[in-house]
Computed example of a mutant assay.
Amino acid sequence: MAVVALWVVMVVAWCSGRAQQILSPNGQLTQHNSAANRFLSLFSVVRFKNSECVGEGGLTGICYTNQDCSIGGGTSSGDCADGFGVCCVTRVGCGETSSNNCSYVESPGYPSTFDYPLTCTHTVTFAPDVCQIRMDVERVELTPPTNAGNCEDDTLTFSQDRKWTSVCGTTTASHFYLDVDPSVSSSLTLTFITSSTTFPRRWRIKLCQIGCDQLSMAPTGCGQYYTTASGSIKGWNHEGIYLSGQNYAICVRKELDHCSTTYLDNQQFMFMPMCGDTFEYPFPVISNPSRSVACNTAITLISAMPLTMPLEGPHYFYLTTTTDTTNDHSSSFNLNYLFTQNPC
Rank of each mutant, 00 (worst) to 15 (best):
R162N: 13
S186D: 12
S195Y: 04
M217A: 15
Q224T: 10
S187Q: 14
L243Q: 06
T228S: 12
N237S: 12
Q209F: 07
L178N: 04
Y177Q: 05
E239G: 07
S232A: 07
S166R: 15
T171M: 08
L178H: 09
I193S: 14
G211T: 12
I210C: 03
E152C: 00
V184S: 15
L190Y: 14
K206C: 10
K163F: 09
G169F: 02
Y177S: 03
T227N: 13
R204E: 11
T227M: 10
T172F: 10
C168I: 04
K234P: 00
A218F: 12
V180K: 10
G235L: 01
G211P: 05
Y177F: 15
D153S: 11
L190D: 04
D181T: 15
G149T: 01
H238N: 14
W236H: 12
A173F: 14
L215G: 14
G149N: 02
P200D: 15
P182Y: 04
C151T: 01
G169M: 05
E239K: 08
S230D: 09
C212K: 08
T197Q: 08
F158N: 10
T220P: 12
S166G: 06
G240L: 07
C222Y: 09
L156S: 02
V184M: 13
L156N: 02
L156V: 15
S159G: 06
S232Q: 11
L156W: 04
L215K: 11
P200V: 08
S216Y: 09
F176D: 02
L188E: 15
I233C: 00
E152R: 08
R202M: 00
Y242P: 01
L190I: 06
A229V: 12
T194Q: 03
P200Y: 10
L188M: 15
S185D: 14
Y225R: 11
T198N: 10
D154G: 01
Q209L: 14
G149W: 03
L190N: 05
R201Q: 02
W203R: 01
T157K: 10
S232L: 10
G221F: 12
N237I: 00
D179H: 04
I233G: 00
I210P: 03
